[in-house]
């Protein structure tokens, strides 16, 4: 089963449609226990980091347990941010901490030269910079464009396989073992996005 987690803050319609287009049949789990049957879990998200509070301890434990038994997990947008330690957007809401670092506002970075002139949210098609080979990025090249819409972003980590620069270079795709996440919306990124989802689903 491919579980598409609904925590009430996202547009699941688009993600579901894109998953179906790459051959998956996503199911929306009603309770954390439902994740026990999942071989793949998608944590989508648009909107505010604080919305991930709906993913309470029971959900967090269920996702951790699924990862521990080898399920593949994919975070999208706020779902990526949730996999980091937290976000300055909602300091009281902890992330899952699968990747190190805090997410922060795109306009807040030392050394971001033109940060004051930066329009935020970062909306639109921006290019990927492939930093490390990854099965998830098969067929994807530096320069390929994907659709972003966000105001906060995650720092680069050892697991960043592709980055994007807007104000500062941030994690666009992170992948470590069976855990992966994308800051952009693959379900809204045309053929490039579908390719990424297909790569992910094939590895599930």
């Amino acid at each position: 089963m491919i579980a598409l987690v609904d925590y009430g803050a996202g547009n699941l319609t688009s993600v579901r449609k894109a998953l179906i287009a790459v051959g998956a049949s996503p199911v929306t789990p009603e309770r954390p226990d439902d994740l026990e049957a999942a071989i793949g879990i998608i944590v989508p998200g648009v909107g505010h980091f604080g919305a991930t509070r709906s993913l309470d301890a029971a959900w967090r434990d269920a996702v951790r347990a699924a990862i521990a038994r080898g399920a593949a997990v994919l975070g999208i947008c706020v779902g990526l941010q949730w996999m980091f330690e937290g976000s300055t957007e909602s300091a009281e809401t902890p992330g899952l901490g699968l990747f190190p670092g805090q997410c922060r506002h795109l306009s807040t970075c030392e050394g971001a030269a033109a940060a004051s002139a930066l329009k935020v949210p970062h909306v639109g098609w921006n290019s990927l910079d492939v930093r490390r080979p990854s099965a998830l990025l098969e067929g994807i090249e530096t320069g390929d464009q994907v659709y972003f819409t966000h105001s906060y972003a995650a720092p680069l980590t050892a697991d960043t396989v592709a980055s994007t620069t807007y104000g500062w270079p941030f994690s666009a795709v992170v992948a470590c073992d069976r855990v992966a996440a994308m800051q952009f919306h693959p379900e809204k990124s045309g053929e490039v996005g579908l390719r990424l989802l297909r790569n992910w689903y094939r590895a599930v």
């Binding site: 803050a9 648009v46 909107g47 505010h48 909306v123 819409t149 966000h150």
Partner: peptide, 8 residues
């Protein structure tokens, strides 16, 4: 904006 985020 509070419910869906400013991007929406």
């Amino acid at each position: 904006a509070s419910r869906y985020g400013s991007q929406a």
